[in-house]
């Protein structure tokens, strides 16, 4: 696996000057994944912050071939690109020894929700590609509407903390488990705060034949109501509180790749975020307790599965 020194010497494939927000979690994820490819790579992006922020004509931040076609179809689009590559290889139109990697990026909206069918189809068909979901927990590009990845209790513009209903009432969908159920050769959860872990997983995924998947925690100062400079710290807290456990499933075996020395109380991650502010009112204490209990159960479930075939 590449060292930090090695990674730092590789080309920057997503140039600066793009229009993503200060403190956005997406660019460090994309840059690290592309650096980990260490060779020719073609990417697609679902409609969303990443697409809007990097491609305003006549500028492009992408120093690699890149396509955006629609919101719900990043996995289907990359299926087509990868199939064209296979056809050209078969017909001798790709130089001998040239190996191109294919990566699809999508937010939680484009992946957990509207793009789930296309993702499932592409995983089942076994295309050779990596899908990276940057999960910031809401439809941030359109103004912070809830998604099925939005944390329980969060205040969004379509699950507002109101007089009667205190934010989102549903638990988040566990997309990583859904992907694992497709029996893909490699799937993992990662966070840019644990960059070496993320880079290692990206490298592993990109060097695995077949469909692979990374679900990556992505801070959003705009939608989380947090300070831009705290994004990586908050990503770290999502991991250390075990809200966002780092693990991988390789050839069916689950492995926790990072165990916090001391599992922090969930409130340490929730408290600095404006989207959870209402949960700290005394009358909402029970929501925090319920949230913590659920995180504990999920973490224990992973601990029980560690090292086992899932």
């Amino acid at each position: 696996m590449a060292t930090l020194k090695e990674l730092s010497k590789r080309d920057e494939l997503l140039s600066g000057g793009h229009r993503l927000c200060a403190g956005c979690g997406i660019p460090p994820i994309v840059r690290l994944v592309l650096r980990s490819a260490n060779g020719p790579v073609v990417a697609t992006t679902a409609t969303g912050c990443l697409e809007v922020g990097t491609s305003i004509y006549p500028y492009t931040a992408w120093r690699i071939p890149w396509i955006h076609s629609a919101f719900e179809n990043a996995a289907a689009t990359i299926s087509g690109v990868e199939s064209a590559y296979k056809a050209f290889k078969k017909r001798g139109k790709i130089p001998e020894g040239k190996d191109i990697k294919f990566v699809a990026f999508g937010g939680d909206g484009g992946t957990y929700d509207i793009g789930l069918q296309a993702l499932s189809g592409a995983l089942e068909r076994g295309h050779n590609f990596l899908y990276v979901c940057y999960d910031n927990g809401a439809y941030m590009n359109t103004g912070i509407q809830r998604s099925s990845a939005t944390p329980y209790g969060a205040n969004t513009t379509t699950s507002p903390a109101g007089e009667v209903i205190p934010g989102k009432q549903e638990w988040r969908k566990d997309l990583t488990r859904i992907v694992i159920a497709h029996n893909v050769p490699y799937a993992a959860q990662a966070s840019p705060s644990n960059w070496a872990d993320l880079s290692k997983k990206a490298e592993k995924a990109l060097n695995t034949k077949g469909p692979t998947f990374l679900n990556v925690m992505s801070a959003c100062p705009l939608g989380w109501y947090t300070k831009p400079e705290e994004s990586i710290k908050l990503s770290k807290l999502s991991v250390d509180t075990c809200y966002w456990p780092l693990y991988e499933v390789e050839d069916g075996i689950l492995k926790i790749t990072y165990r916090p020395k001391e599992k922090k109380p969930l409130e340490e991650w929730l408290k600095p975020q404006g989207r959870f502010k209402h949960l700290f009112k005394p009358e909402n204490r029970h929501i925090l307790d319920k949230f913590q209990a659920r995180v504990d159960i999920e973490w224990q479930r992973l601990l029980d599965l560690d090292g086992k075939r899932v």
């Binding site: 073609v42 697409e51 006549p58 076609s69 050209f88």
Partner: peptide, 13 residues
């Protein structure tokens, strides 16, 4: 898109 030496951007905003 497979011409990685001459990258093109498709579907820009």
């Amino acid at each position: 898109l497979l011409d990685t030496d001459k990258p093109s951007t498709y579907g820009a905003m």
